[in-house]
């Protein structure tokens, strides 16, 4: 998921100071052919080409990669979301709670969970699940689903995700990119990345 429409509540007075400050953490290069654990978990991928790891994260169990920038292509890894937790960090636990992954969540309900999270987190209405199909992931029964949504930047993005529930935790990789040009351009790179995903403990 991208940060496209994060609402920063900077006061006007502090804004210029923030402009001058250098960015705190730099992005990292993830080299092709080198296996790397992601999202502070046992989920490991071996990219087929170089990717950039974005410095910020949207949640404790997440990590985001991109080729050309988060708005143009965004791969987010969800590395073992435990039962009772939302997919991404809640901006405001009390006032804007996010839907939670639960012990009862069925694999077929994972697309709905992502949909409800996107809608709530990004405050959008234009989200459509295009397809949901079974597809093995991380060596077990999994789901592959495609979706489309229009963010507040009025750009329609296509997304594809693969997910599996292993030992009661949700593992998922999503790929979001503008429907026009960018999605098709990098879909093969994402597929190669998702196909390379393994859980270390299963090796």
């Amino acid at each position: 998921m991208t940060f496209a429409r994060c609402k920063f509540a900077f006061g006007l007075a502090v804004a210029p100071a923030l402009l001058i400050a250098a960015p705190a953490a730099a992005h990292k290069l993830r080299q092709g052919g080198v296996a790397v654990p992601v999202a502070a978990s046992t989920l490991t991928v071996t990219p087929s080409r170089d990717w950039n790891q974005l410095s910020g994260t949207i949640g404790k169990n997440t990590e985001s990669w991109t080729l050309d920038g988060g708005q143009l292509n965004d791969v987010t890894f969800y590395g073992g979301i435990p039962a009772g937790k939302p997919l991404v960090k809640e901006r405001n636990k009390k006032h804007q709670p996010l839907p939670k992954f639960t012990r009862e969540t069925l694999l077929i309900e994972v697309p709905e969970l992502l949909e409800r999270t996107y809608r709530t987190y990004k405050e959008l209405a234009a989200f459509r699940l295009l397809s949901t199909d079974p597809a093995p992931f991380l060596g077990t029964e999994g789901v592959i689903f495609r979706y489309e949504f229009t963010d507040k930047d009025e750009l329609t993005r296509t997304g594809e995700a693969r997910a599996a529930i292993v030992a009661g935790k949700l593992y998922m990789i999503t790929f979001d990119a503008p429907r026009l040009n960018f999605y098709a351009r990098s879909a093969a790179d994402f597929h190669a990345l998702a196909d390379s995903a393994r859980l270390q403990s299963l090796r």
Partner: peptide, 21 residues
Amino acid sequence: LASISTSSSIQRSNQNIQLQV
């Protein structure tokens, strides 16, 4: 300030200031 900076994050915060104003 944003135009003399090469960092995309600084350019992004310029957009946020615009939204804010």
